[in-house]
Nucleic acid binder design. Structure first.
Lengths: 108, 108
DNA sequence: GCTATATTCAACCATATAGTTGAATATATA
DNA sequence: TATATATTCAACTATATGGTTGAATATAGC
């Protein structure tokens, strides 16, 4: 009865947390190690590590080992999936905004 | 320390539930009453009503009373906000896909 | 091999969330 | 006004989530 798409559950759930969104923001320009990321938050290392696991399950980030560190980078998979989902609704709200602009336009 | 944006918390939290995404899908072509929506789910009326409250707080839907019914329709506000957020990352994953296409292209 | 550094795992706790049931409210109609 | 229909509210329950602490694992370097 419900179009059940577990991947969207996990992706949107991941995006619903401000610390996780902040991690994504930091990863935008470049990859970071887990430790580098952890420094910026008033949380335990373990808590940040768990946030990264959540982001990884959602395929919003990827990790790869580099010596004793783990390098974390953005992954386009999850972000693309979320974006594709919202694209279904994009026409709707763009058209509403168009109508608003039309309404605000003085004349012609 | 964290770019805290409560509206995105609420919007993505709303989108993380399959029943709520299904409700949005049903509202795409036209508005529905709460009762019409509730019919489609194996949940109590109250449960569906609560899902709608969550969607409303996220400004993903709007309700307006019409006699003893409540008409529910999509609201562009929340959807637009989520879409704008993801747009920051769109370049990233589109460029990754471009690179993939480039890689797959036979030659030239 | 021993020790330090980087990260994860396991167990636990508090709070939030999705669901229920039954009562309350709002409106339409006889 | 009384009754039926549509919806929400309140109280409660079970499970999920975000956090902690302390132990475990993996790798680097002496």
């Amino acid at each position: 009865m419900v179009e059940y798409s577990k991947d969207l559950d996990v992706i949107f759930q991941s995006l619903a947390d401000p610390t996780r969104r902040d991690i994504l923001r930091r990863l935008r320009p470049r990859e970071h190690t887990v430790g580098e990321l952890a420094q910026h938050y008033d949380l335990t290392f373990a808590a940040v590590s768990k946030h990264l696991q959540v982001l990884e399950r959602a395929r919003l980030v990827r990790k790869r080992r580099s010596g004793r560190e783990q390098k974390v980078e953005l992954s386009p998979a999850g972000l693309g999936r979320a974006d594709t989902y919202l694209a279904q609704y994009r026409i709707l709200w763009e058209e509403k905004i168009d109508r608003l602009e039309e309404f605000l336009k003085p004349n012609k």
